[in-house]
Amino acid sequence: MEILASRVLFRPQDYARSVSFYRDQLGLAVAREYAGGTVFYAGQSLIEIAGHGSPAAGAPPFPGALWLQVRDLAATQDELRSRGVAIAREARREPWGLHEMHVTDPDGVALIFVQVPEDHPLRRDTR
């Protein structure tokens, strides 16, 4: 498996309070905003504060997830299954346009594997 990019994804109890904390209190620059979310620059990484979604039912309390971009989500899902990894949520296209699959690590941390479709805004050159 080849990981192309990653970011820390938080799904806070209070979206506005968390955005204010990262933007106003910590002073992080906004990398991009979308309906229901804000992504901040954090050195060579990104922190995404999402106002959508929620942790899986019954999952231990954990405010975020590890976002891992892959080239081919179906192939990644097959590869992980072949290694005995349980898929918490099958690969599917999300309302925000990304293809996502969820896996949970032994400590309950959500890993979100993502494939960015060719027509998604993340693929556009913004220069």
Rank of each mutant, 00 (worst) to 15 (best):
M1I: 15
L4R: 14
L4K: 14
L4M: 12
L4E: 06
S6V: 00
S6H: 11
V8E: 09
L9C: 10
L9Q: 12
L9P: 08
F10S: 06
F10G: 03
F10M: 07
R11T: 01
R11E: 00
R11Q: 04
R11L: 02
P12R: 03
P12I: 01
Q13R: 03
Q13F: 02
Y15K: 04
A16S: 11
S18A: 12
V19R: 08
S20H: 12
F21R: 09
F21G: 13
Y22R: 05
Y22L: 03
Y22S: 04
Y22M: 02
Q25I: 15
Q25C: 14
G27Y: 07
G27W: 05
L28F: 11
L28C: 10
A29Y: 13
V30D: 11
R32M: 13
A35R: 05
G36T: 01
G37W: 00
Y41D: 14
A42C: 15
A42W: 00
Q44Y: 13
Q44D: 15
I47G: 00
E48H: 06
I49H: 00
I49Q: 02
G51E: 03
G51I: 02
H52S: 08
S54F: 00
P55K: 05
P55V: 05
P55E: 01
A56P: 08
G58T: 03
A59L: 05
P60V: 07
G64R: 04
A65C: 05
A65I: 05
A65E: 05
W67M: 09
Q69C: 14
V70Y: 11
R71P: 09
D72R: 05
D72H: 10
L73E: 09
A75G: 10
Q77D: 02
D78A: 13
D78V: 11
R81D: 13
S82A: 15
S82Y: 07
R83V: 08
G84W: 10
A86E: 13
I87D: 00
R89M: 12
E90W: 09
R92P: 06
R92E: 09
R92A: 13
P95C: 04
G97R: 00
L98G: 01
E100N: 10
E100F: 08
T104G: 12
P106R: 01
P106T: 05
P106S: 07
D107H: 08
D107Q: 10
A110C: 14
I112Q: 06
I112W: 04
F113D: 01
F113T: 06
Q115E: 15
Q115H: 06
V116Y: 06
P117V: 00
P117G: 07
E118H: 11
E118M: 05
D119C: 02
H120G: 01
P121A: 09
L122C: 07
R123H: 03
R123D: 03
R123G: 03
T126Y: 11
R127L: 14
